[in-house]
Amino acid sequence: MSALSPKSGSPADCAVTEGHVGLPVLDPPPTAAPDTGKTKNGEWQPYIVGFACNWCTYAGADLAGLSRMQYPPNMRLVRVPCSGRVNPQFVLRAFQKGADAVLVAGCHPGDCHYGTGNYFTRRRFLLMQRLLTFMGVDPRRFQARWISGSEAPKFRDVVTELTEQVRPLGPNRLWREVEP
């Protein structure tokens, strides 16, 4: 498969899809699942997928960037219209595709752009966290946070904290998708 390797996706080109013929542009994250557990200077780095709502958390992340805040580069953000858009399959799919941890983040309750989306998010993921723990997942690997558009420092802290929590856990192999 050497012919393929230079072209295979890496997290860095996550959002980029090259021009091509006849294939869907919107596809699951391009990394081959077994490729995760990236190393930097020979050291394993956690790969974290964050689902961020467009109106608060994503704006908060943007602000953190604009303010040149320093935080670990381990999280790939997926922008969603509302945290209420995140369904259980998003979380599972991220784990299948090699995420070592998943974060769901949105507006503070009461502040959802759509009024009530995140109240449903809260119920859904309070429950799903418990279910995943029941199936042996370390609760640190699946978290949810409310981060508003002005809370850039909170965004920085959450990413930093999550990365540091996951690092000692090592790569997540549970449910990782591999070629049959």
Binding site: L4, K7, E18, H20, L23, P28, A32, A33, E179, P180
Partner: peptide, 14 residues
């Protein structure tokens, strides 16, 4: 298909 990304994957039979 077992798709790795938009371009690559494995044809599987199930």
């Amino acid at each position: 298909d077992h798709r790795r990304n938009a371009h690559e994957g494995t044809k599987i039979r199930c």
